[in-house]
């Protein structure tokens, strides 16, 4: 393996990708469809965190909110306003769906920052499914709401007639690249950050370099906290943008 520079460099061993290994929580068998794995554990913790914040945190229903309730209301207001502003007022019906995506991603990202944890959103399996869900939803909604008029999204009526077929091809390609970039952006960002931290941690084995390494890890960790939130935000806002295209396909 490329990263295993064993032996030659004073026994430095890098395994930056080992943190992404999926393994069964109990026993040592193969990973089947229903096997309870570390994926299950960390997704369950994500659910617990979401329920803690959004359900238990607001259980008092107080008019003057406590800490947890304020945060819950803040998240609610944040996503609600985003849906309303970006996707339009008629997209409010999709608010619970978008809220689900946002809460899952943001909590999975933050839980992934706990040392020794497993980052579910750094796996393409997860993000591709999330992106495909958005893609399929947007496409279906587009055709249901606008019928064949949804194809007008690809026919740029403001461009010169001669250019339109070429633009249509480009638009169609970009439309189908959307789920790819949508999913790879999220997983790639998280994977890159975690792998970089792991590589820095590998350098800490050399005593002289270790202070620098620790500093670098701290700095990267701070950046990762930022990235965790921004990527969840970006995923959500892009979902809203795609949804706007589906609801109002005219350019």
């Amino acid at each position: 393996m490329a990263t295993e520079a064993q032996g030659e460099e004073g026994g430095l061993v890098f395994h930056p990708m080992d943190q992404f290994i999926v393994k069964p929580l109990f026993g040592d068998g193969p990973v089947g469809l229903f096997t309870i794995t570390n994926v299950t554990l960390w997704m369950a913790l994500t659910v617990v965190a979401v329920v803690l914040l959004m359900v238990l945190g607001t259980s008092k229903r107080s008019t003057i909110p406590g800490r947890m309730q304020s945060v819950g209301e803040l998240a609610y207001g944040f996503i609600y306003k985003m849906v309303e502003d970006v996707a339009g007022k008629d997209a409010v019906g999709f608010f619970p769906y978008i809220m689900t995506l946002f809460m899952f991603i943001v909590f999975a990202n933050f839980l992934g920052l706990i040392p020794m944890s497993f980052t579910t959103t750094s796996h393409f399996a997860v993000t591709v499914l999330l992106a495909l869900l958005v893609f399929v939803t947007v496409t279906v909604v587009g055709f249901v709401k606008n019928g064949a008029g949804f194809l007008g999204l690809f026919w740029v009526s403001s461009a010169p007639l001669a250019l339109r077929p070429i633009l249509a091809v480009i638009e169609i390609i970009s439309y189908f690249v959307r789920p790819v970039s949508h999913s790879i952006r999220l997983a790639g960002n998280l994977m890159a950050g975690h792998a970089v931290i792991k590589v820095f941690a590998g350098f800490a084995a050399i005593a002289v370099v270790s202070p620098v390494s620790v500093l670098a890890i701290t700095a990267m960790y701070g950046l990762e906290v930022l990235v965790s939130f921004i990527q969840a935000y970006v995923f959500t806002i892009l979902t809203c943008v795609y949804l706007k295209d589906a609801l109002h396909p005219s350019h």
Binding site: V22, V39, M43, M54, V55, M103, F104, V126
Partner: peptide
């Protein structure tokens, strides 16, 4: 090899979160 497992649990997770939220 691991994709079916992850996808299965992701769907479970999303459904549960969606239920609780909505």
């Amino acid at each position: 090899d691991w994709w079916p497992n992850q996808i299965f649990w992701l769907i479970v997770t999303l459904v549960v979160i969606f239920f609780f939220l909505s």
